[in-house]
Amino acid sequence: MMKSLTIDAAKCTGCLQCELACSFEHEGVFNPAKSRVKVFVLHDTGRYIPYTCTQCSDAWCASVCPVEAIESDRETGVKRVIDSRCVGCKVCTIACPFGTINYNAASGKVVKCDLCGGEPACADACPTGAITFVDAEWTGYGRMKAWAGRTDTAAQAQG
């Protein structure tokens, strides 16, 4: 089964455990600056919103890469950067509409979420279930179920 990270911003508290887990998994260091997932705090509306790469099927970053450094895994859907090919031209960072692929000055390559090889550390670290790793074809399952409960008007009328 192909799985996706799915984000429920309403559950996020902005604790950054996801960013810590991500940087630790990839860089061996606690360092939000090197995290592939990022939590945004929108003070004016009091919201916390985690965001990362959604592994597009037809990915802008891969399409635009001049050296074919972004490889697609057919089975998992992951778009992975092949470091040995990446020349750090950053064209992918311009092409990606979502800003989820970024340049890392230390390595001279671009970095993006690679789903940690199938066990995303961010989802594992999230204390509230704001980030989960679920069936890619059923990312809406939880919300659908919650809404389905509200459509049973007969039960509501009785209750």
Binding site: T13, G14, C15, L16, Q17, L20, G46, Y48, P127
Partner: peptide, 19 residues
């Protein structure tokens, strides 16, 4: 109370965000 919010790394998240 609008919601709760966390400090860095905190899995308790007791902070109050009010309006």
């Amino acid at each position: 109370l609008l919601r709760n919010g966390a400090c860095f790394g905190c899995t308790i998240a007791c902070g109050r965000i009010s309006q």
